[in-house]
Amino acid sequence: MKEFVLLFRQPSYDYSQATKEEMQALTKKWQDWLGGIAAQGKLAGNGIRLAMDGKVLSAGGVITDGPFVEIRERLGSFITVKANSLEEATTLAHGCPAIDANGSVEIRPVFG
């Protein structure tokens, strides 16, 4: 099996306004989706979680502070999965909560 990285992008959203129940529901969505991939024995790495704030350095030395409301699709996090083909890895991406949030999942093979 080969390894593929699943990169999540989704519109910036201010989670500080979300209720506890909404956050719980969101966590469940992600955990159930990840658990589903892990249950198939296809989760290779849980990636790293990225915090909401940060900075962006652009040409001309322009520094922007996060949260990145002006960026249409913020990079969320990523995971590594095991699959036999790009098609199979793409199938695993189905049901990713980032897509429900009008975001996208980019599937890229890992060299090696």
């Binding site: 469940k28 955990q31 159930d32 990840l34 658990g35 892990a38 249950a39 198939q40 024995g41 989760l43």
Partner: peptide, 18 residues
């Protein structure tokens, strides 16, 4: 229980746990 199994699978996959 479901969430605990989700976490367990991410650390340690086995068909039984799945």
């Amino acid at each position: 229980i479901l969430q605990l199994y989700n976490q367990l699978l991410m650390i340690n996959y086995s068909p039984g746990v799945a």
